[in-house]
């Protein structure tokens, strides 16, 4: 059975990560499993753990008052669920629901923030990996907001 270190190394997010940093991350990580329909987290919950998907797909949704939830993104293997753990007030801004059985690595956010504070090289490496993801999602959100398939 593979250890967490080996599983983390195989995840695309950590490609090229230095072994000492990988060990620091592994100290904050644990294996997680979610059944179909189970929530990884709910809007408003403390963002105390984020997830690296290994298998399965996750739907991100927001529920407007008095309406059904709206799914605005789905994520799959190799992708990251959640960035709200990076910035105060460390609260989730949406729900995350398993569309099928999901196997993921959960990273304890407070643990990782503490290690990034103590080791700025680690913090820089984490930011270098998170920032492109955030920028891509920002671009995608802009495209969704434009509603390009609507009647114009």
């Amino acid at each position: 059975m593979k250890g967490l270190d080996a599983i983390l190394e195989e995840h695309p997010f950590f490609a090229g990560f230095a072994p000492p940093h990988m060990q620091l991350i592994a100290g904050c990580a644990r294996n997680r499993r979610f059944d179909e329909g189970e929530y990884l987290f709910h809007e408003g919950d403390p963002a105390d753990e984020f997830f690296l998907i290994r298998h399965g797909r996750v739907a991100l949704d927001i529920t407007p008052p008095g309406r059904d939830p709206i799914v605005f993104e789905t994520l799959g293997p190799g992708e990251i669920v959640g960035a709200s753990w990076l910035v105060p007030p460390y609260r989730w801004m949406f729900d995350a629901r398993a569309l099928e059985v999901v196997r993921a690595i959960g990273i304890d956010a407070a643990c990782l923030r503490g290690k990034c504070d103590a080791d700025h090289d680690l913090g820089y490496q984490m930011m270098m990996r998170f920032l492109p993801i955030l920028v891509k999602r920002l671009h995608a959100t802009r495209l969704q907001i434009l509603d390009v398939y609507g009647r114009h």
């Binding site: 739907a59 991100l60 949704d61 059904d68 939830p69 709206i70 799914v71 605005f72 993104e73 789905t74 799959g76 629901r97 569309l99 891509k136 995608a140 495209l143 969704q144 509603d147 398939y149």
Partner: peptide
């Protein structure tokens, strides 16, 4: 196949079509 947004009954992808290219 992907859609820009969906209700929870949709089990397919949600997101913009360029995001499918890398997969």
């Amino acid at each position: 196949v992907t859609v820009d947004h969906a209700d929870p009954s949709w089990r397919g992808n949600v997101g913009v079509v360029p995001s499918l290219i890398r997969h």
